[in-house]
């Protein structure tokens, strides 16, 4: 097996592993949405401000998984190792 194809195959594997970064942010976003639902159930009049706070928090939590996606894409499209 030549080195180039080994690196390409391992890069594809690494890109797959990179998408696992979605695991943590998905969990976090789900917890945030659940807590927001609880808060709306307790205080229905504060719905709009709870919603926008939840969205900001979820957007920040999403950053990690977006970084994972970007690294996966770099490994697949513009591999620096080959």
């Amino acid at each position: 097996m030549d080195g180039r194809s080994f690196i390409l195959g391992m890069s594809a594997l690494a890109a797959g592993i990179c998408t696992l970064s979605g695991l943590g942010s998905g969990l976090g976003q789900g917890i945030a949405a659940g807590k927001a639902a609880e808060a709306v159930a307790r205080q229905p009049e504060a719905r709009s401000s709870i919603l926008s706070t939840m969205l900001i928090g979820q957007a920040v939590a999403e950053t990690c998984s977006v970084y994972g996606l970007v690294i996966a894409l770099i490994l697949l499209m513009a591999n620096p190792l080959v």
Binding site: A59, E62, T63, V66, Y67, L69, V70, L73
Partner: peptide, 8 residues
Amino acid sequence: FRLFGNML
């Protein structure tokens, strides 16, 4: 990266 990654 957030906007870029989501849209891409």
